[in-house]
Design a protein around this nucleic acid. Structure first.
Lengths: 191, 191, 191, 191
DNA sequence: CATGAATGAGTATTCATTCAT
DNA sequence: CATGAATGAATACTCATTCAT
């Protein structure tokens, strides 16, 4: 009678279904009963676990953001900025490819008006994390002496652009291409 | 600098109002009567010029895309890829800064489900345009030998990332920063 | 093209329909679309005139209360308490019989939780009005020396009891019975 | 004074909880799970004892009505109508004060649409009981020669009016006031 | 041409009731 | 017996669109 490790719990099923639909059709374009149906639960059931559609989207956002954060935080020990960058980039690529929807979701909902303060705060913490890594490398003269936010925007923008493009073309980048892109990224910001 | 001597026509006023609201609240988050009010016309009037809300958003999309296209197409004559890149980048920056809403609108609505075939086709033509420029430069050995789409995604991604970030921080990049960023962009793709 | 005096306006039709249904089935027992149908308007139309179902019920309450207030306020000039009582009673009877639903509505919704402060304040003003009449008569020694609220509760209670009973039996009191009842009322409170 | 040595049974707890909530928020305004929680039982448990919410409210109604009936029926032996009235009035007052919620509940749900035939029949029997008492007194010339229902409506109306008022003012009548009111009641109907 | 009142299909959410445990 | 998680029908309310003026 113990809940098996395998079978997804109801709230998890709801979050997974909602994630997919929000990516496909947007927040306002997705009806709650649609989510319920895709999750294989009754419409009312959703409200047992999430007080409202808005709470649901925030919960998903934070959930995915945390998973993404772990990719960045499991950052490497002391190495050169070059190695750090490569490692980070490849980890990001791995995550993005394996969690395409999750990644796209975070991008799309970035500044959405329905994100609550907690979600926004989490977003800021993630950015700060990234910024610190950049500052450290800059202080060692390994990166260009530009505002850290600028370098961050450049790298993250590139990365997102690549993912978006591969979605549009419905064709994932090969390993070789990821490495090529990584090289581009590095050359963009190196001192 | 006024585009026309005459005061903006009604359909123009509608499109301008709608553009602003779609950027602020999204397509589904914007009510047609709201657009009407902001445009200073009656709700019914909108339907004299646009068959539906969807037609309206597509019309705006294409309109803005064309304006953006002119920035790219008014491309320079024969020069080095370096100069071409710089010129293109700075024109893009100028347009984006002067037409922030327009730029954000195009980004947000990129793949939206309510875009019709004509809009999608236009989008493809713009990409092809860009691709051609890249291929030409590659054939002269001035750019990295990567798939043109990849280089394009990298550059456009960077650019969008910068704009997004400056919106988030509510602080536009300075001229110096734009130049710095341009240098990053160039180093990312140069051979 | 002038709006004819005859044809009821839409908000009036809605209020009339809602009054009837609220009396029959209660506030929570009445669905908004039911009101719309009975009023002969679309469901959405109700929300052009009343921000919510709650606003609607309050608007009706105040409207009816004001009409009832006019019955009491058009009180007679200086006479004996006996004559004043008779006049008041008969006016109340006339109103109640001619506006049965209105009267029942006010009784049922007296303390309802969905009444807002404005409605409650109006209710209090009506009571004060009544109390003043009683106090004046008491000071002339024409009524029993009991707390005014007590005499008021007795008279209003009797009156409501009669109306309720005639509704239950679906048989209105005759003129003779109203006079009889009036006599009972007077004897209950006279000094 | 505990009715039983044993702690209240589950159905009793449910009825008590429901009575309180129905008085506070009305029938449609009260959710079954709320009742369950207040009664300290599971939501499903209610349905072991009451087939539906409607059955529950009817059961409560009849239960309270019977208790009220006992107040009236335990009527006194042969005395004057004056004494009988006083005794009845004071018993009613005692019951109403000690069972305010019960009393209010009966008043509010009097004609509610969810009352079933059995409840309605019980209501009629109670009225008949009262009517007989009045007729007897009338035949002895001690009461006014008015239709019994009219006198009954007057007295019950007065009584309800007093209770309602004391609830509104959140201030129970004193013994002296109850006696004063009783005198008013008597004078209203005595021959 | 222009309007905005009117509409009703569609949305998020609640709640009486069931049933597997 | 008792439970409370699950359900889906029903509710209040919104909004794209129409059309009489």
């Amino acid at each position: 009678m113990a809940t098996t490790a395998k079978s997804t719990s109801k709230p998890e099923a709801v979050m997974a279904a909602a994630l997919g639909l929000f990516v496909e059709r947007g927040f306002y374009g997705t009806a709650v009963p649609e989510i319920a149906q895709k999750a294989g639960v009754g419409a009312g059931t959703i409200y047992r676990y999430f007080a409202s559609k808005e709470v649901l989207v925030n919960e998903i956002f934070r959930n995915e953001k945390m998973r993404w954060g772990q990719v960045l935080m499991a950052a490497s020990p002391v190495t050169t900025a070059r190695d750090l960058f490569r490692s980070l980039w490849m980890r990001m690529a791995k995550f993005a490819v394996e969690n395409l929807q999750s990644f796209v979701f975070m991008e799309l909902h970035h500044h959405a008006r329905y994100l609550d303060d907690e979600s926004r705060a989490l977003e800021q913490r993630m950015l700060a994390l990234f910024e610190d890594i950049i500052k450290a490398a800059q202080s060692r003269g390994e990166l260009k002496a530009a505002p850290p936010r600028l370098l961050m925007a450049i790298i993250m923008g590139m990365f997102v652009g690549l993912i978006r493009d591969s979605i549009e073309q419905d064709l994932m980048l090969s390993d070789a291409e990821w490495k090529l892109a990584e090289q581009c990224g590095w050359e963009a910001i190196r001192a």
